[in-house]
Amino acid sequence: MIFRYLAPIVLLVLAVAVPSEAGGPNRIPHAPVVPDDKLRQLHVAADLAAWGRRNRDPLALIVAARLIAGTPLREMAGIKIEGEPNPEVLTALDIYMPDVLLGDAGRLAANDPLLTELIVDTREAVPRGVVARPVRSRNLVPAFSQDVFEYVFEALEPATIYVQGMGATNLDLAIEDESGNPICDANRYSDREICQWTPARQGPFRVIVKNLGPIPNAYYLMSN
């Protein structure tokens, strides 16, 4: 509760302490990340889903479905400024739909009555048709290529960009400000990458999604 009131003051002090003119990196160094961010929850859920599929663990898929269902998203038109245009339909990304996760969990749970009951409970609890922030767009990046997007973020408001691929290749995520200063470089051996920072001033950011693999990969790009 205290953090809620102190955070804007702390950010303001930090913002004053860094150069505000274009040329200095457009991020406030060491600004704390808001811990209850919804995109962070999606990131954890997608990682959990990937772990569950790798390890054939139905419980992990059930929990991932619950977390994803609890974070409704609003679809957004593409804002790609470089890269191949997206196809109209990208069903490959449905692997993160709660219904699909629960279907997979059901196949893995086989006849386990306890897990079957949990799947039924979760399916009944999945909210439908809810529209809320954050937003996402569906995209496809060809092999050994990159997509570039432009986002504008407000000064002092924590910004989050999250990439969630379909698991075909390794995707990396990089953020640059309008002067080309690196803001974030997320490069796990994964196609689920997240960047969080607090801009020092309002401005555009280049969001670069790199496909390191020899085949295309479909992905959601999400932002707060």
């Binding site: 490959a92 997979d104 196949r107 390794n170 051996y189 693999g213 020899p214 085949i215 479909a218």
Partner: peptide
């Protein structure tokens, strides 16, 4: 490196058709 990694990228959540389990 990308070739080596991508060729063996085993995360394949999408590998199962129709969202199925690998």
């Amino acid at each position: 490196l990308a070739l080596a990694l991508a060729a063996g990228f085993p995360d394949g959540a999408g590998a199962g058709s129709d969202g199925g389990v690998p």
